Amino acid sequence: MSEWAPKRFWKSADILITDHGFGVVLDGRPVRTPAKAVLHVPSRSIAERIVQEFDAQNERIDPRTMPFTRTANAAVDKVAVQHADVADMLADYGDSDLLCYRAEAPDELVARQNDMWDPLLDWAARQMNARLEPRVGVMHAPQDTAAVTALRKRVHALTEFELAAFHDLVAISGSLVIGFAAKAQFKPIEELWAASRVDETWQQEQWGEDEEATEMAEHKKAAFLHASEFMRLLSVQTSD
């Protein structure tokens, strides 16, 4: 979006039905991505959010206030042209998933990890035929090949728009399982965010809040919640 004109130049933003789904037009002219492709999304609900982001701009455009536009741009410009590479990168999290690396002590932290992480691993085993096993410590220990392969196939089956949102769900949480749980809406997204922050929350409780770390966490949380909403809206069916 750095290539966009910094000043607002349009009066109205509207949705346009296209051969690829839904586009957005500014005073009748199609919105283009930073790579100059015509922007399109498969869901009217997402197109509506993008229109709202354009409508909300004041005299100068602020890309930070346009997360749906950014994610759609990423899907078209980046993920679509290197889908396999992005899918492989995210699938690799399955062999080193956050949920599998447990503390040895103290007992309170161990219990909290077990309570919040075991149900997610059980869900993955039940719903995706992918049993990932926890281990104590931070040293890498390979997971069962069949489980990792099952997860990898599911990642590669995602569309470019799903994968764009899935990227943030996984990369921010550090967990492929949490990413899939968010996509499936297995638990409320706030609970999944809390599950990804068990260790950080514990440290904060023991040593107090660090202002810089808290601010960074809030930015990550906002991106995580946005990715979940983008993924959810991909499946929302609305009339033309």
Rank of each mutant, 00 (worst) to 15 (best):
H219P: 01
W207G: 07
K187D: 10
W207H: 15
Q185I: 07
W193G: 02
A227T: 00
A181M: 09
E162Y: 04
A165G: 15
A223I: 03
P188H: 14
G179E: 01
V155L: 11
F166Y: 04
D210W: 13
E162G: 07
F230T: 01
E229Q: 15
E190P: 01
R154P: 06
Q203I: 11
K220C: 10
P188G: 10
E205K: 05
I172L: 10
T214Y: 09
K220D: 05
S196P: 04
L176V: 09
A217Q: 14
S173Q: 05
A182H: 03
H219A: 12
I178C: 11
E215S: 11
K183I: 01
I178H: 12
T214E: 13
I172C: 03
E191P: 05
L176A: 10
F186S: 08
D199K: 12
E205I: 00
W193P: 04
E212A: 15
L169R: 00
F161C: 02
T201Y: 01
L192A: 10
L151Q: 09
D199A: 14
E190A: 14
V148G: 02
Q203T: 07
D210T: 06
H167S: 14
A147H: 04
E191H: 14
T149V: 14
P188S: 11
A146N: 12
F230Y: 15
L225T: 01
R154G: 15
F230R: 09
A182Y: 04
E209L: 07
A181C: 02
R232P: 02
S175H: 03
T159M: 10
L158Y: 04
R154W: 09
V155E: 09
E162T: 01
K220F: 13
A184C: 12
R152N: 08
A164M: 03
S175M: 08
A181L: 10
E209C: 01
F186E: 15
K153H: 14
T214I: 02
K220E: 14
L158T: 02
E200Y: 09
L192W: 04
E209M: 07
E215N: 12
A181W: 05
T149P: 06
E191I: 11
T159R: 06
E215H: 12
A171I: 06
A157R: 12
F186V: 13
F186L: 13
R197K: 14
E205A: 02
I189Y: 01
G179H: 09
K187V: 08
E162M: 09
V170W: 02
